[in-house]
Amino acid sequence: MSDRLLVPVLLALSLSVVAAPAWSHKLKVFVTAEGTRLVGYAYFIPGGRPRQVAVTVTDADGKVLAATATDDEGHFQIEAKRRIDHHITVGGGDGHVATYTVRAEELPDSLSPSPSISLSQSEGRERLPPSSSAPLLQAGQASGPSPIAAVSPALSASNTDWRVFIDQSIARQIRPLREQINAYQEKIWWHDVLGGIGYILGLGGLAFGLAERRRQRDASPSTVAGRNPS
């Protein structure tokens, strides 16, 4: 029997060798918040990066907040405008889809959860009398593209600036750690391949054993019946 199975065994082994440097099917995406920027990249397991693939950012309700595309290395950047959960979807349009969620807590406090009012604006109102025209001007600036840059010199020493700085440095520090976890997941891939082959062979053995037992059970009454008349 082992002789009969030699060819497929060799076939399976040669294929698994070929599989080593190959591309895999699973698309994954990894994103970190660096200040208000969502920086990330998409990649295939165990290797390869999708080139010029659409990246869409949606909120919890599925409303599209921003759209971009990966560069040739699979990297992309998106500016977060609000402090809400950002669902980043990378999809090639051919069924490869990967999503990653950047939680609102990862984004700096300087962003506000609502689209119109930002945090620096509300802080300005608390500190200065509402009748003054200066905070209103600041509020107008704060709703501009970058809340960090829009913080006026009067507020530069405030908590907001420090929070942004701390968020950014923590994001930078834990990024290698998170990448390491992702790399570790890719390593498990090989264990899964071997495990899968083992499952299939085990299932085949089980089916063969059960079929053999049934055949023996079917055979035994007939031999008894065959013996009785003689």
């Binding site: 698994s16 099917h25 349009g93 051919d94 899968g196 082959i197 299939i200 085949g204 053995g205």
Partner: peptide, 30 residues
Amino acid sequence: AERIPQVALLSAVLFVAALVHFPVGPSSVH
């Protein structure tokens, strides 16, 4: 019953074959 090992082995081959991927255009096929 005699062909069960054959089926299992080809199933294993199919299982591994789909992990052999290569890029075609913007996508990757296997």
